[in-house]
Design a protein around this nucleic acid. Sequence first.
DNA 1: GGATGTAGTCAGTTTTTTCTTACTCAAGCT
DNA 2: AGCTTGAGTAAGAAAAAACTGACTACATCC
Lengths: 122, 122
Amino acid sequence: MKISLANVEHCPVVSTMAVIGGKWKILIIHLINNDVNRFGKLSMLLKHISRQMLTTQLRELERDGILERVVYAEIPPHVEYFLTPKGKALIPVLTALKDWGFEHALGETGAASQKAKPAIPA
Amino acid sequence: MKISLANVEHCPVVSTMAVIGGKWKILIIHLINNDVNRFGKLSMLLKHISRQMLTTQLRELERDGILERVVYAEIPPHVEYFLTPKGKALIPVLTALKDWGFEHALGETGAASQKAKPAIPA
DNA sequence: GGATGTAGTCAGTTTTTTCTTACTCAAGCT
DNA sequence: AGCTTGAGTAAGAAAAAACTGACTACATCC
């Protein structure tokens, strides 16, 4: 989520949204928090994300200090992702989002149902 | 409660993000929660939002049951926006976002590090 | 009889985000 | 000698989000 200098109101909420607002980011954070920490595995679970998107999102999350990228010098390549403390601190946010979603949004809102195209088919 | 990895598409987190993920939505919710409930006032405080954007976001939030639009039959037009109970239930989300932002994102991340004057009263 | 004020709408364009398809690298196996 | 594997890159296109500037309506005030 790109936020131009002109409209950032130095608001902590906006700052946070800038970090987790990407289309796949909270999902990625959630998966990594559940020990899905390899690129291929993430790619498999997030079936409809392109590899490039996944790379981009991972890089941004890394840049923002949310996760750490650990490269093992092996062939074929082996990379693992972990949440940093800063990333783990996002869990309460995840929880709040989840709680609200459970109670108010599952399969009913216009916004949620329009964008169907499930990330992972049931 | 843990989210099943097999059902990420029914993920409440995703549903919630679909509702509040717009560029201005949490800000609008925040302002309305602080009794800024008229179009013109919102437009003034969100200096850099276009009127059309504001209209669109308000309409979407209304469609998603987050806020209620009350029209008074007056000239010049008089419209007020209020959070519904469903919308008020988002306050904990707002709080979680704000808390994380205060502690981890203000003026430091790549995504959110643009500096600006605070224009939104906390 | 023109300006004022509120809450918009409309058409068209630009910017940003996301997707598609093809390609890479280097070791190990067959 | 070629296929497989994991974790990506590159280039370009398509789709979505956001922006711009001009325009509307109508009662009241000056």
